[in-house]
């Protein structure tokens, strides 16, 4: 009797696990693709079109370090730190001069991106040998899954929590939020807003570099590695809206569900169509994205029931 119930329940549980796995996989990819872009866009109003190339640098540094003997997790952290430093230099030299000039900053960061990817092509050729995904696989029912992909889901969640704590619970976070909300008043209160911008840009870049490093073992490492992530990154940021702490997780949760369900049922082509159609609908219905919706709900007149 029990054995029969078990044999009937088992495939259902396998299906549930498969759905969970596909979902967290899509969620992690969307969050990690977008997080650096979302921090820079949400906190500074700059659309960083070099985002993909910063991820590419993260992947190259990770692979380079790992192949010269650095343990892989450490190599990824090194990549995050190094790309953060590159981001800081980029902010001081270029982006700083373009605040409040949205289109100019788009053109300038795009140019930086082109220089980085084409420069990498000239320096290292069309591809380098990557590193294999660590940790191996496990089976649930008839299907085998990758441990590393589950780890990516956990890392995506951990990064979101860490960002929340950083911006809501630390002095740096308080100053950064003050700088976004009203730079003049923040300056009057003694906040070095120029430094805030540099640090925030470096943080966004470091997150891009780290994400690039995290995905380096799952993909082929080439100068145009960054283009792997651009559609997902922009779709997540557009659907999420300006508030990175609220918008990005909600957008990734929604889009991840749509993407995983459609891909599993009708294939990746329909999933891609679904992702873009959802974005169009969200732009039409919620021009300020998911975080705009949350703001409206939070600021609703109380007692007006």
């Amino acid at each position: 009797m029990l054995a029969r119930i078990a044999s009937e329940v088992r495939p259902v549980l396998d299906g549930v696990f498969n759905a969970f796995y596909q979902y967290q996989d899509s969620f992690a990819f969307l969050v990690l693709s977008a997080i650096g872009l979302a921090v820079i866009f949400g906190m500074m109003g700059v659309i960083n079109l070099a985002h993909g190339e910063l991820m590419m640098l993260g992947a190259y540094i990770t692979v380079g370090a790992a192949r010269s003997g650095v343990p892989l997790p450490l190599a990824m952290l090194v990549a995050g730190a190094a790309v953060g430093l590159i981001g800081a230099i980029m902010e001081v030299l270029i982006v700083r001069r373009l605040y409040g000039r949205l289109l100019d900053s788009v053109a300038a960061t795009w140019a930086v991106g082109l220089i980085l990817s084409q420069g990498m092509l000239i320096l290292t050729g069309p591809s380098i040998q990557g590193v294999a995904s660590p940790l191996g696989s496990f089976r649930v029912g008839n299907t085998s899954y990758s441990w590393y992909r589950l780890l990516l889901g956990a890392v995506a969640l951990a990064l979101l929590v860490a960002l929340y704590l950083l911006f809501m619970r630390t002095r740096f976070g308080l100053r950064a939020r003050a700088t976004i909300q009203n730079p003049e008043i923040a300056r009057a209160l003694g906040v070095d807003t120029a430094r805030m911008y540099t640090v925030t840009f470096a943080l966004g870049s470091a997150l891009a570099g780290l994400a690039g490093g995290l995905y380096a073992p799952t993909a082929t490492v080439v100068p145009f590695f960054g283009t792997n992530f651009m559609v997902e990154a922009f779709v997540t940021v557009i659907v999420g809206g300006a508030n990175v702490l609220v918008g990005s997780p909600l957008a990734a949760a929604l889009l991840g569900a749509i993407n995983a369900f459609l891909a599993q049922t009708w294939g990746l082509y329909i999933a891609r169509v679904g992702l873009l159609v959802t974005t169009i609908i969200v732009i039409r219905v919620l021009p300020r994205g998911m975080s705009g919706l949350v703001d409206r709900w939070r600021l609703r007149p109380t007692g007006a029931r």
Partner: peptide
């Protein structure tokens, strides 16, 4: 380039 990532991912998934 993007689609060739399939190989690493299928290998990692066993």
């Amino acid at each position: 380039i993007k689609q060739s990532s399939f190989y690493e991912q299928k290998n990692s998934a066993g």
